[in-house]
Design a protein around this nucleic acid. Structure first.
Length: 495
RNA sequence: GUCCCCAUAGUCUAGCGGUCAGGACGCGGCCCUUUCAAGGCUGAGACACGAGUUCGAUUCUCGUUGGGGGCACCA
């Protein structure tokens, strides 16, 4: 490893599913690592035992894999800086604490959470700003402190922020120069009374020990950064480059939450969005290639991604555009890829697994029917169900009225003539010959194509709106199609 | 309350002192057409406001307004 190698990490806490915002953070880290020829580390931050679960960890890993965000180091992948789960790194935090104790950079604090809450509440009552911990325990005599610890008194360990510390400055790769007055930094807790590390402490230890060079994370951590820099300084570690990402908001401009509908990656997967779509779309929420290009395949993203082109502004997650983009990806994915992705939805439409396995060619032809008509795969079952009706047909009442029963139209006449063409075994059971013959029929009857094709469509597909007619017919069984027309003729016109 | 951040059409964005303020989604119209789509052409639509700096501000500075985030023994 060279000293200049880029190392980034995505560090979700397994307290829920992989959120849209988290996914984008992951994508940026991943894309940046790839673009820089660096290393992408995945780390599980499970120091909150009350909210972290193994199940959530698995859900997150699954979502990452589904998105195609492969990590070079992390759970299951291993790596020389492991383990990659915080609860397995507790000894490293203990070590760091011991080091700080030895150097007198931390002190035990015996104030209870209740006391502190009360102080905070009182300050707010009096209309005063609560300016952090009042440092009551900072000046307790070390020997007395040790006596109280030995006596088993409950305590946390706080960072002794140097009294003469000037403003904390750093250069954010997205926001530019940042400056925070040091006096607003209180002596934050590093280790809880149960001995577990707090988030800020654990992150700094891990990022330093894992040699992370660029911390790319959500905007909500911007105010945490000066605190963390204080910890880096106390520990004597070099600070990484920070890059903070603006938030992703819901349509109402508020933070994305359950109220806005789907918020997790797996929900989007279940509604029939493609991973390529999600990566492309999320990448563009706060980053642009050139301001012009909107379809950006992952290999291009991995080549061109740069921190410089990340936006500072919060972005609203607009599902309309996501739908459009997914449609674009479906349109260009090709038949065999499509069949893989569409499989479960085809089964919902009425196909059987066995039928798909027996004749994949036939099913791949269905791609042409919907390639330009699908935005999400969950639209597929309804759109293609008619292909699997066999000899049955379910007639849409409105379509029957408008197309077959419209006054003055010669729908019945056209349909009966078409029925004989379709039933004619001498005409090959293929789209073109069938379609051409029906076109000829239009001329013979001196009717506009529309008035001939639409009745046929309704009789076979049950609806005046459907994918291309004879391309569909070709994929069905001749006897079935004829049976459907006969049924329609009987139900609509009698006889 | 306090600290920090942000501000180009409904949405995602380009712009980095002089542009007809560009692209994409969505919306309207036209073309194509056996339906629906897709596609092509086309139209409407934006620099939050107010002061500066400057020959000239969307762009630089300050303020106002609006929005967002942090201020935990959560991450």
């Amino acid at each position: 490893m060279t000293a200049s190698e880029v190392r980034v990490r995505f560090a979700p806490s397994p307290t829920g599913k992989l959120h849209i915002g988290g996914a984008r953070t992951a994508i940026y880290n991943w894309a940046f690592a790839r673009a820089m020829g660096g290393t992408f580390v995945l780390r599980i931050e499970d120091t909150d035992p009350t909210r972290s679960t193994e199940e959530n960890t698995q859900i997150i890993l699954r979502a990452m894999r589904w998105l195609g965000l492969d990590w070079d180091e992390g759970p299951e992948a291993g790596g020389e800086y492991g383990p990659y789960t915080q609860t397995e790194r507790l000894d490293t935090y203990r070590e760091a604490l011991e080091k700080l104790k030895a150097e007198g950079k931390v002190y035990p604090c015996f104030c209870s959470k209740e006391e502190l809450d009360a102080k905070r509440a009182a300050a707010e009552q009096n209309g005063q700003a609560y300016s952090g911990y009042d440092r009551t325990c900072r000046d307790i005599d070390p020997e007395e402190a040790q006596r109280r610890i030995d006596a088993g008194e409950e305590h946390v360990w706080r960072l002794k922020v140097p009294a003469d510390h000037g403003p904390i400055e750093f250069e954010d790769a997205v926001y530019g120069p940042m400056q925070f007055p040091a006096d607003v930094m209180d002596d934050l807790i590093l280790v809880r009374s149960d001995g577990s590390p707090t988030y800020n402490f654990a992150v700094v230890c891990d990022d330093a020990n894992m040699r992370i060079t660029h911390v790319i994370r959500g905007d909500d951590h911007l105010s945490n950064t000066p605190r963390q820099i204080l910890i880096y300084e106390a520990l004597g570690y070099p600070t990484p480059t920070f890059a903070h990402l603006s938030m992703i908001l819901g349509g109402d401009g508020k933070k994305l939450s359950k109220r806005h509908g789907a918020t997790s990656v797996e929900e989007y997967r279940d509604r029939g969005y493609l991973p390529d779509t999600m990566v492309n779309f999320l990448a563009l929420l706060g980053w642009s290639l050139d301001g012009e290009t909107t379809i950006i395949p992952r290999d291009v993203l991995c080549r061109e991604f740069s921190l410089e082109r990340i936006t500072k502004k919060d972005a609203v997650f607009d599902e309309t555009k996501l739908n459009w983009m997914n449609g674009q990806y479906i349109q260009h994915m090709g038949a065999s890829e499509w069949l893989k992705a569409a499989r479960s939805w085809l089964v919902q439409a009425g196909a059987t697994e066995a039928a798909i396995d027996a004749d994949p060619e036939r099913f791949m032809k269905m791609y042409a029917l919907v390639a330009e008509r699908l935005q999400r795969f969950d639209e597929l079952p309804e759109k293609l169900a008619y292909l699997f009706w066999g000899p049955e047909v379910t007639l849409d009442e409105k379509s029957v009225k408008k197309v077959l029963l419209k006054e003055g139209a010669r729908a019945e006449e056209a349909l009966r003539a078409a029925r004989d063409i379709i039933a004619d075994e001498s005409i090959a059971w293929e789209c073109d010959p069938l379609q051409d013959t029906v076109r000829g029929l239009c001329e013979k009857l001196d009717m506009k194509a529309k008035f001939v094709f639409q009745p046929i469509r309704v009789a076979i597909c049950g609806n005046m709106v459907s994918p291309p007619l004879f391309e569909s017919v070709e994929l069905m069984d001749r006897a079935d199609v004829v049976a459907r027309i006969d049924t329609t003729l009987k139900e609509v016109f009698g006889a």
